[in-house]
Design a protein around this nucleic acid. Structure first.
Length: 874
RNA sequence: GGACGCGUAGCUCAGCUGGUUAGAGCGCUCGCCUCACACGCGAGAGGUCGUGGGUUCGAGUCCCGCCGUGUCCACCA
């Protein structure tokens, strides 16, 4: 076969073709196999409304590396893909699209709305999956899931009913976070605090008995409409006498008591707090302790309701203005103080959250959190990096009940029915026909849906078939590794852990790998508002998926953020091109020849050296992947391929390839093919496309690299002696190149090298290497030479003379040698100081002492050789 | 208020349980279109590892203080 290969790698031509090849081969599909060990990852399901961004790209790349690696190692590696219905985000988008058409969801009703939503899902749900494929991810697409599909929905209902029956789900009136824009509750985790400029209104409330006023301050004056008390600290001497007295609420006229409660901070403000149980979580608690009435003064859209008297109908802001104005007019406003304070906002739309009392469904968290804390503490679930545990513990140990009902339509409808006849609440897996209490037939289902995260919390087992006892569940669960960003540790990771333990009796995964976030080249978070987002698909189009993948993992370390820049992708693209050209070189040299993919019987020094290096590499890559050190693994692969294989081995291989000895040429061809194909295997999880493409064109066994065995350390490839020899020669070559470069000798000018060494055999064997890589006309090797006026190079094992008298600047040469001597002397003295240090000798480990001793000896010899060169110049 | 991360070459970052002379990519300088690759080859310059102490035979690495920077949690009306 003869193929003209382009000088540069063209990913666009390769990627789709290779991906199709993988799909046709069914390589990504996994089934339970008793002969194999399972390895499972479930994808963090992206939102159906979402577009692929760099965060996904990194997340998926890391998972794909793990899955491909384990698959090649012989595991039954399953990667379950899927998407999340993302109730609040999706519903917002659909409502927005409807607004463009001039319709609201209320107008069309629930059923029609859901019809639209599913149509939306069908239209856009596939988009992100197609985008994922472009990255080269090896998900088992036959098992694709959706959080709102039948199986997941069944799991959701099952969980809800079980928790309800255990008393861990309840419905009650509590203070919840209300988003007036999304018109739904959100959980505490979904509230983001933002520092904003605000005002502190100092007010005074009059005593009923006319004995004056009590001064207090508030940041939300409009909530006074719902005030049902004023509180002071029980130990506060200033106010002890007034506890129990009655105040008249200005503007409203309601009589409210002064209560004593420890919640009040004496040193803050005036030490007096107005209590609005319906609109502040702390006030709610105070209200409970003192049996205060709860007066809700707010509508769903944040406007004032009928409890607000004449302010009813005004928006929150309007009411605030009007109330402040009237308070001022009537002498109740003391002062206005500007302050900065944290305001809770909705994580989706960033509207200010209005806390208000409402009847909602909650999950009782404490009993669920306890075993989940234990599982992480006892390392049944390991966090990488470990420090993320602290964040988790801090949250779990202070956990509050989880508000799970949402006033949305797109989501899992709460499986609760209310009897219109007797008011009974029925929670069931399927819709009940009759009320179990009164036998009535008039039941209506709760209008609300569940928090999106309620279904994603079940993802690791719902996608495997739970609550049914499936083969998949038995074989693939618990899953092995969860890969995600540290930003969703509360939303998702924590909730999966307690859900897994509660419902399956097992942790959902044994390891959580937290990667960092990707920032822009200036270190800023990528966001729509900044417009600094990068479209991974455009990057792939320009540089290739492999280049993007490699960029996203080079230099990363667990849990730390990284910066994206085009320059870094270019570097990865260049690396891909380097590999491409190395393979082009090999293909060129085996073209038309029968080259088996096996090691030849005899191996040269350099063959053994490269095999030894490759072997160490295999060991290191496996070790680093076990430790999730992706950045280190990528670096090692890069260095081996570029520095060792291309820059040295291929260059040296040319000697035999272009020589007259056909047996030797065949030998080196085999080594090239052997090392290249296995290096491609090592690299495959990182850069799947180019490696598969090249591997297919080289002699190989097996039908696809994606299923080829992953190289591991092999004792038979350990060649210490030849590696040391090769290093000696490489040192000498580098030394000669260095000297020639310093002296500006043209590469075309070949010179004779006189090599004085005790290891004559080694250097004689390297003759051709010197000729090719060190511009030698030929070499002379002997224990010593007596040459005048030559430039000398001193390496650990040799002293090399280059005879170029006319080019030698004696003074410069002297200076250089003196400097080199000084460096060596410093090192030697350093080593000697250690060897003479009794404490070092007695306390340092044997290995370290031996190392220093060896080093000291070498430096001594080195110094002597330099000295002799210096002497020769005089 | 609490917790955590980061501060290493001009830039972006590695550096695992402390152990010889601290690394890479990009950028820069010099020389090369050497028959795989100029998305390349060879060579080079460039670092008091934020700072002050401490532990140790030995600290970029461990401990404490400080400075700068970033993030998370809590939230005082």
């Amino acid at each position: 076969m003869s193929r003209e290969l382009a000088k540069t790698y063209n990913p666009g031509e390769v990627e789709d073709r290779i991906y199709d090849f993988w799909l046709k081969g069914g390589y990504f599909h996994a089934e339970p196999d008793s002969k194999k060990k399972p390895y499972t990852i479930v994808i963090p399901p992206p939102n159906i409304t979402g577009q692929l961004h760099l965060g996904h790209a990194m997340d998926e790349t890391l998972q794909d590396i793990l899955i491909r690696w384990r698959r090649m190692q012989g595991y039954s590696a399953l990667w379950v893909p899927g998407t999340d219905h993302a109730s609040i985000a999706t519903e917002a988008k659909i409502v927005e699209a409807m607004r463009a058409e001039g319709i609201t969801k209320e107008q069309i009703g629930r059923e029609a709305f859901l019809k639209r939503a599913w149509a939306w899902k069908d239209k856009f749900g596939g988009r992100i999956e197609q985008q994922l494929r472009k990255l080269g991810v090896s998900c088992d697409w036959e098992r694709e899931r959706f959080t709102l599909d039948e199986g997941c929905s069944k799991a959701v209902r099952e969980v809800f009913v079980r928790l309800y029956e255990k008393g861990l789900i309840y419905r009650g009136e509590r203070i919840i976070n209300w988003c007036p824009h999304c018109k739904t509750t959100i959980s505490d985790a979904e509230v983001e605090f933002e520092e904003k400029d605000g005002s502190f209104w100092h007010l005074r409330y009059p005593f009923k008995d006319g004995s004056g006023y009590l001064e207090l301050a508030t940041t939300r004056p409009e909530t006074m409409l719902g005030d049902t008390a004023v509180a002071v600290h029980p130990d506060d001497e200033r106010y002890k006498s007034i506890v129990g007295k009655t105040l008249i609420l200005p503007l409203v006229g309601r009589e409210i008591p002064v209560v004593a409660d420890e919640y009040v901070e004496q040193d803050f403000g005036t030490g007096v707090v107005k209590i609005t149980p319906a609109h502040d979580p702390n006030d709610f608690e105070v209200g409970r302790r003192h049996n205060l009435p709860v007066i809700n003064v707010m509508n769903e859209d944040g406007s004032i309701n009928e409890n607000g008297g004449k302010y009813a109908g005004m928006s929150g802001l309007e009411a605030r203005k009007q109330i402040v104005k009237e308070l001022d007019e009537q002498g109740y406003l003391v002062s206005i103080e500007p302050i900065k304070h944290n305001v809770g906002t909705c994580y989706r739309c960033h509207s200010t959250i209005e806390p208000r009392v409402s009847k909602q469904w909650f999950v009782k968290m404490e009993p669920l959190a306890k075993p989940a804390i234990k599982a992480v503490r006892e390392k049944d679930v390991c966090f990488i990096p470990e420090r993320m545990e602290k964040v988790y513990f801090n949250w779990m140990e202070n956990i509050k009940d989880w508000c799970i009902s949402r006033q949305l339509w797109w989501g899992h409808r709460i499986p609760a029915w209310y009897c219109d006849d007797c008011g009974e609440t029925v929670v069931a897996r399927t819709a009940p026909d009759t009320c179990p209490k009164c036998g009535g037939h008039h039941l209506h289902q709760d209008e609300d849906t569940l928090d999106t995260w309620f279904s994603s919390a079940l993802w690791p087992f719902s996608v495997l078939g739970w609550p049914d006892k499936t083969k998949d569940l038995e074989y693939y669960y618990p899953t092995n590794t969860l890969v995600t960003g540290y930003d969703i540790i509360f939303f998702w990771v924590a909730r999966m852990i307690f859900s897994g333990i509660e419902h399956t009796g097992q942790v959902p995964f044994h390891t959580v790998f937290f990667h960092g976030l990707i920032r822009d080249s200036q270190g800023r978070k990528m966001s729509k508002s900044l417009g600094n987002g990068i479209d991974p698909l455009k990057v792939i189009e320009k540089y290739g998926a492999d280049a993007l993948r490699f960029t996203l993992i080079t230099g990363i370390s667990p849990g730390n953020d990284t910066r994206y820049s085009d320059e870094r992708v270019e570097a990865s693209r260049n690396f891909a091109n380097k590999i491409w050209n190395a393979s082009r070189f090999i293909l060129m040299n085996i073209d038309g020849k029968e080259v088996p993919n096996e090691l030849p019987r005899t191996l040269s020094m350099e063959d053994k050296w490269i095999l030894n290096s490759f072997n160490n590499l295999a060991q290191e890559i496996n070790d680093n992947l076990e430790k999730f050190e992706f950045g280190v693994a990528a670096q090692k692969l890069h260095d081996f391929i570029w520095d060792q294989f291309c820059d040295w081995y291929i260059e040296i291989a040319k000697i035999r390839l272009n020589g007259t000895d056909e047996a030797a040429a065949q030998q080196v061809r085999q080594v090239l093919v052997w090392v290249m194909t296995r290096t491609l295997a090592l690299l495959h999880p990182f850069m799947p496309y180019i490696t598969e493409e090249i591997w297919q064109s080289l002699p190989h066994t097996g039908e696809a690299l994606v299923m080829a065995p992953y190289p591991a350390y092999d004792e038979k490839l350990h060649f210490a002696e030849d590696t040391a020899k090769m290093e000696s020669i490489m040192d000498a070559v580098r030394g000669v190149r260095n000297r020639r470069s310093e002296m500006n000798v043209q590469p075309s000018r070949k010179t004779v090298l006189h090599i004085a060494t005790a290891k004559e055999d080694i250097f004689r064997a390297g003759e051709e290497i010197f000729k090719r890589l060190a511009y030698a006309a030929n070499i002379e090797v002997a224990p010593s030479f007596s040459l005048d006026g030559a430039v000398t190079i001193v390496t650990p094992d040799a002293k090399i003379y280059i005879q170029m008298n006319e080019l030698v600047d004696m003074e410069a040469e002297k200076k250089r040698l003196t400097k080199e001597l000084e460096t060596a002397q410093r090192g030697y003295q350093n080593a000697q100081a250690k060897l003479q240090n009794e404490k070092f000798m007695s306390k340092a480990p044997e290995k370290v002492v031996a190392g220093v001793r060896e080093n000291s000896k070498k430096l001594k010899e080195h110094m002597e050789l330099i000295q002799s060169s210096l002497d020769a110049l005089k």
